[in-house]
Design a protein around this nucleic acid. Structure first.
Length: 576
RNA sequence: CGGGGUGUGGCGCAGUCUGGUAGCGCGCCUGCUUUGGGAGCAGGAUGCCGGAGGUUCAAAUCCUCUCACCCCGACCA
């Protein structure tokens, strides 16, 4: 690539609408431009990165025996109605109508379409297993797109779907995909963790996420310090920790006290000079079944709505509206408690609430709380479940002495065991060896290709710009002739450029007639892993200067040996 | 959807309170000088001040409506 023939509109200043580093740097490096909220143009260098990620994904999926196909982006409503998701998927589904007023959606995921494809053309156990994947533009009408490519509405995604004769074979494939994902992200140069996760809107029974560790990540994950267990905090099981059991408080009677205007645990704790862990938070939820229920968690804990939803066995829960809270408690929001309901409400408590004494709870009366709450004495028939978010320091559920560390993560991939959810709903059946008809077992596996590119920038950047890992860099080498007007430098740079191309090394030749400082700054910003400076300094000694973007020091690169040396470094970077 | 904020040359911003010739820095174009970490001088181009309506002799500025984008929350493969 010649710099002057390539659209690389770099910016000196951070764009004002960008918050996270990947967004800022990819815009500044002239790789992406926003065109609407959550929707981006990819410019030549940005697109090269995306295509490299895509190619790594493709190679590894092919190696695992999956077959690439392409399904339509625009999908008919009928298929989604058949699975029930036309109603249930919600407003993330971009719905459109054609000129005949027929309903379609822009596909956010393709379980329905692929299941339809397979049910029509796969009939026998002899045709199974099969794993079909595509790399395609998806559209998800996110409530709040943000952080550039990290949460866009239009995104490039690899989605794979596998079909099997039984659950065992599906689990084998699930494991194969997990291994494949580890290879893919390692080849991309990314440090990822595989964590247990909830199955969410996709449905199904078992799921893992692949998270790139980064402070800017939107997901919170915990991992055991002693064993392999790691999970999203909303899902992570919590070991029966002794630390959750509070020492008994001095005996006290239940007493109603005035707490005017003190609604949050923080406020009331400060007002009463009681520690938050002596509080029991009462949160009212409306479920997908239309029930109003209350969940109790300790004041210093946070509720996981995922765990609550799973404990109740419902499709979704959401915090109850103010009017519902007031109807159930007879009080304004902020004073709900598990005693003296105005209207009976089912109550489910987190394990850490068990046996609490000397507790503080809302009184179901505006501006009042109870102190001296004793769970056994005052609310003996309580039902318990694991409802809270895991956090650092919690005991590991899988090993003796482990405890959790916490991290932030960017979810770049996920794998789901679906069971027969879609095959049953959509009648994707096959005949087994005994001639019996059975629903296929399914798994699905996604990778956010554009998000992976952004996650790489989150993981590899410094004050001057991006530091691409070699395998996904927009080019391997950037050649910077210090003075383009100088014929000897120009000739030498052109010569090296030609030889690198011949050697299969991707190079950007900065053939702009710019001052050296401009070229160096732009080179740092773009983040090409290797830079060769062709200038006056080394001319007398017959050397160029070689710099690696992730190292401070430059070193000599003998002219005659340049191509071979660069080839070796590039090869090592690609093999990493 | 609730709360907060911003829309002024390609980019970053001032001007709005208190109505009166639309500005600055960077970038862009021309020329000269420069040339190893975002050069200097001189000259130049680029604005329906997000849009619509209103008030006024006069609106970037005041009023009403609207659209877009950003942040926080709810939400989310």
């Amino acid at each position: 690539m010649r710099y002057t023939k390539t659209l690389i509109p770099t910016l000196k200043e951070d764009p004002t609408d960008a918050e996270v580093v990947s967004h800022k740097l990819m815009v500044r490096a002239g790789m992406i431009r926003q065109i609407a909220r959550g929707i981006y143009d990819f410019l030549p260098l940005g697109w090269r990165v995306v295509r490299k990620v895509e190619q790594i994904v493709r190679e590894e999926m092919d190696r695992a025996g999956a077959q690439e196909i392409l399904m339509p982006a625009v999908c008919p409503a009928e298929l989604w109605q058949e699975s029930g998701r036309w109603e249930h998927y919600g407003r993330e589904l971009l719905r459109i109508k054609d000129r005949h007023d027929r309903e379609f959606c822009f596909g956010p995921t393709h379980e329905e379409v692929v299941t339809d494809l397979v049910r029509r053309d796969v009939r026998s156990y002899r045709d199974l297993p099969i794993n079909l994947y595509q790399i395609q533009t998806k559209f998800r009408d996110e409530v709040r797109p943000r952080f550039g490519l990290m949460r866009g509405r239009e995104l490039l995604m690899k989605d794979a779907y596998s079909f099997h004769v039984d659950a065992d074979d599906c689990h084998r494939e699930y494991q194969l995909m997990a291994d494949t994902y580890r290879r893919i992200f390692r080849r991309c140069g990314l440090d990822t963790r595989q964590v247990e996760s909830d199955t969410g809107a996709i449905g199904g029974r078992r799921a893992h996420e692949f998270q790139v560790l980064a402070d800017s990540g939107e997901d919170a994950i915990v991992s055991c310090t002693q064993c392999e267990y790691a999970a999203n905090v909303e899902k992570a099981e919590i070991g029966r920790a002794d630390s959750d059991v509070l020492p008994a408080a001095p005996a006290a009677t239940l007493k109603k006290i005035r707490t005017p205007g003190k609604r949050s645990v923080e406020d009331v704790a400060a007002f009463l000079s009681e520690p938050p862990e002596r509080f029991v938070k009462t949160l009212l939820f409306t479920t997908s079944e239309g029930e109003t229920m209350a969940a109790l968690v300790r004041g210093d804990h946070e509720l996981s709505d995922v765990k609550l939803r799973n404990a109740l066995g419902v499709a979704w829960v959401q915090l109850a509206e103010a009017s519902v809270v007031e109807a159930s408690t007879g009080a304004e929001i902020g004073f709900a408690g598990p005693l003296q309901w105005k209207r009976p409400v089912r109550v489910l408590a987190d394990h850490a609430v068990r046996g609490i004494t000397g507790g503080v709870i809302g009184a179901n009366e505006t501006d009042h709380h109870f102190v001296g709450f004793d769970q056994q004495r005052d609310l003996g028939d309580l039902a318990f479940a694991d409802l809270r978010l895991a956090r650092a320091g919690d005991r590991c559920p899988r090993c003796e002495n482990g405890a959790f560390d916490s991290h932030r993560g960017i979810e770049v991939g996920n794998i789901f065991y679906l069971g027969t959810k879609y095959s049953t709903a959509m009648k994707a059946m096959f005949l087994d060896a005994d001639g019996r008809e059975k629903p296929m077992e399914m798994g699905c596996y996604g990778i956010g290709v554009t998000r992976t590119a952004a996650a790489a920038v989150e993981q590899y950047n410094d004050a001057n710009g991006i530091l691409w890992p070699m395998p996904i860099a927009p080019a391997h080498v950037q050649i910077v002739p210090v003075k383009w007007a100088d014929e000897r430098m120009r000739t030498a740079a052109e010569d090296l450029y030609g030889k690198l191309q011949g050697a299969g090394i991707e190079a950007i030749l900065d053939d702009r007639d710019e001052r050296p400082g401009v070229k160096f700054k732009d080179a740092d910003l773009l983040g090409v892993p290797l830079r060769v400076t062709v200038g006056g300094k080394g001319r007398g000694r017959g050397v160029y200067e070689r710099e690696q973007r992730d190292q401070a020091e430059a070193s000599d690169l003998p002219v005659g040996d340049a191509v071979d040396q660069l080839k070796k470094i590039v090869a090592a970077g690609l093999a990493h």
